[in-house]
């Protein structure tokens, strides 16, 4: 603990005891501090994913695939074996891993540019083959790493650096609802869309990730957990404003909830 922490965090010895602990940083996150901007949803989802991996006791059985984009460095933070894939190819790389190690739990972690633009073919075909993968799809409607260009999921009229007058759907296409698109495929087992803009939504996202990983443990098919997220820096907003943007602009177009759930027999 640093000096600042010692001064500002006087520990109440009667409460700060292991038996009263209700939340701590999951030990499956590495010590490395996230490079993400303040308030970024990527960090939250990384954290939730590792919480679930810890709680399920599957650290040694899980192999992840990192994309290209802001979360290109996911392998620096997620304390499981990881591979870094070329832009858009995460589902192909994950297919390669899963096919030779079917007993392992394999996930990809991808942003909207990686999954819904350059990697659409890999994603659709992995889903259509019913590959036993958990695909975690972070949809913040904008390119983060390259600084705020239009994403396939950018909303109609949304101002980005490559749609400076607002996304014109007649010339720049419509925002792409990947989850709805994939849900139609018979190989797809579970599709849900969640968010991390409020404590309640964070809880639901964690449950969705848990569900996705439980299904992977049983090799039940392709699972997609879309997380509607923010990008304060490129939306040029404070973290709080960007979460309001998620609530007021993104979620009305990308409604939250389960899109495809396994039939209960």
């Amino acid at each position: 603990m640093s000096e600042l922490n010692e001064i500002m965090n006087p520990i109440k010895e009667n409460i700060c005891l292991p038996e009263f602990l209700v939340y701590e940083r999951p030990d499956t996150l590495t010590e490395q501090e996230f490079h993400y901007c303040p308030g970024c949803g990527h960090s939250t989802v990384h954290k939730l994913l590792m919480e679930v991996v810890s709680e399920m006791g599957i650290v040694g059985d899980t192999i992840g695939v990192a994309p290209v984009g802001c979360s290109v460095f996911a392998y620096h933070y997620l304390g499981v074996d990881m591979q870094q894939a070329a832009h858009g190819r995460a589902c192909a790389v994950a297919t390669g891993i899963k096919r030779v190690m079917p007993e392992k739990i394999v996930f990809t972690y991808q942003g909207d540019g990686d999954l819904a633009a350059i990697g659409t073919a890999e994603t659709v075909h992995a889903a259509n083959r019913g590959e036993n993968l958990l695909v975690i799809f972070i949809n913040n409607g904008i390119y983060g790493m390259t600084s705020g260009q239009m994403a396939p999921t950018s909303l109609e009229g949304m101002v980005t650096t490559t749609s400076p007058y607002g996304r014109d759907v007649l010339t720049q296409g419509y925002p792409l609802k990947i989850s709805e698109l994939l849900a139609h495929l018979p190989g797809v087992y579970y599709v849900t869309r969640q968010a991390v803009n409020t404590a309640g939504n964070v809880r639901k996202t964690k449950k969705a990730l848990q569900r996705g990983l439980e299904y992977q443990k049983k090799n039940l098919g392709f699972c997609l957990v879309e997380v509607v997220s923010n990008c304060p820096s490129n939306l040029k907003m404070t973290p709080l404003e960007s979460n309001e943007f998620v609530a007021n602009q993104m979620i009305p177009f990308y409604p939250l909830g389960d899109i495809k759930v396994p039939e209960v027999k």
Binding site: A92, G96, I97, A121
Partner: peptide, 24 residues
């Protein structure tokens, strides 16, 4: 042996990357 017809050569070589990365 695993034999899989990929959707493209782009995908095939990336499946190779994934499987080779597992020491196969």
């Amino acid at each position: 042996m695993v034999v899989l017809q990929a959707e493209s050569e782009v995908s095939a070589i990336n499946m190779i990357y994934g499987a080779a990365g597992c020491g196969k």
